[in-house]
Every structure is written in C-alpha cells, then in structure tokens.
Lab assay of single mutants.
Amino acid sequence: KNAAKIVNEALNQGITLFVSDNKLKYKTNRDSIPSELLEEWKQHKQELIDFLTQLES
C-alpha cells in the first residue's frame, strides 16, 4: 500500500493524519483506532511523514 491510499482509508474512517514536529499524528472523533490501522501506520511511518509533509508544503 502506498501513503496516499493509507491516508485516504484513514479519512474514510473519520481519521485525519498529519505531521507535527516531524512526528505522525492523528485527529479523530472516534473512541478508538483499530489496531490494524495503527500497525499499518507504524509500518509505513516514514513514507506517511514524507507524503504528508510534501502535501503541506
């Protein structure tokens, strides 16, 4: 999976991924984040940080 797909899947579940101080963060109104999503974010962390940083610049 690529970073764009992961970010879109998160958005579809009401979760916004973003970068703050070079760290991957998220915002959501959900009570909890599915563990498989958290695991996927960890596996692709640097790719996600790079992707989101490019989007914001």
Score class of each variant (00 low, 15 high):
1 K>F: 14
1 K>S: 11
2 N>D: 14
2 N>V: 12
2 N>Q: 10
3 A>Q: 02
3 A>H: 02
3 A>M: 11
3 A>Y: 05
4 A>D: 06
4 A>S: 09
5 K>D: 15
6 I>L: 11
6 I>C: 03
6 I>V: 04
6 I>W: 04
7 V>W: 09
8 N>T: 13
8 N>D: 12
8 N>V: 10
8 N>W: 15
9 E>P: 00
9 E>D: 11
10 A>G: 03
10 A>K: 01
10 A>D: 00
10 A>Y: 02
10 A>W: 02
11 L>W: 10
11 L>E: 07
11 L>Y: 10
13 Q>D: 04
13 Q>M: 15
13 Q>S: 07
14 G>I: 01
14 G>D: 05
14 G>A: 04
15 I>C: 04
16 T>Y: 15
16 T>S: 06
16 T>V: 15
17 L>N: 01
17 L>Y: 01
18 F>Q: 04
18 F>D: 02
19 V>T: 05
19 V>G: 01
20 S>V: 15
20 S>W: 10
21 D>K: 07
21 D>R: 07
21 D>C: 12
21 D>H: 09
22 N>C: 13
23 K>R: 08
23 K>Y: 07
23 K>V: 13
23 K>D: 15
23 K>E: 15
24 L>V: 05
24 L>D: 01
24 L>N: 00
24 L>C: 03
25 K>Q: 13
25 K>M: 15
26 Y>A: 04
26 Y>C: 05
26 Y>E: 00
28 T>R: 03
28 T>G: 06
29 N>F: 11
29 N>D: 14
29 N>M: 11
29 N>E: 13
30 R>K: 08
30 R>D: 04
30 R>V: 05
30 R>N: 08
31 D>M: 09
32 S>L: 07
32 S>R: 08
34 P>E: 04
34 P>Q: 04
34 P>L: 04
35 S>Q: 14
36 E>K: 09
36 E>F: 09
37 L>Q: 04
37 L>T: 05
38 L>P: 03
38 L>V: 08
38 L>S: 04
38 L>N: 03
39 E>K: 09
39 E>N: 09
40 E>M: 14
40 E>F: 10
40 E>D: 09
41 W>V: 05
41 W>S: 01
42 K>C: 14
43 Q>H: 10
43 Q>N: 11
43 Q>R: 14
44 H>I: 04
45 K>S: 13
46 Q>Y: 08
46 Q>H: 07
47 E>D: 08
47 E>Y: 05
47 E>A: 12
48 L>W: 00
48 L>K: 00
49 I>H: 03
50 D>A: 13
50 D>P: 03
51 F>Y: 15
51 F>S: 01
51 F>G: 00
51 F>P: 00
51 F>V: 02
52 L>P: 00
52 L>S: 00
52 L>F: 06
52 L>W: 01
54 Q>F: 09
55 L>K: 10
56 E>V: 13
56 E>K: 11
56 E>N: 14
56 E>Q: 15
57 S>A: 14
57 S>I: 14
57 S>G: 13
57 S>T: 12
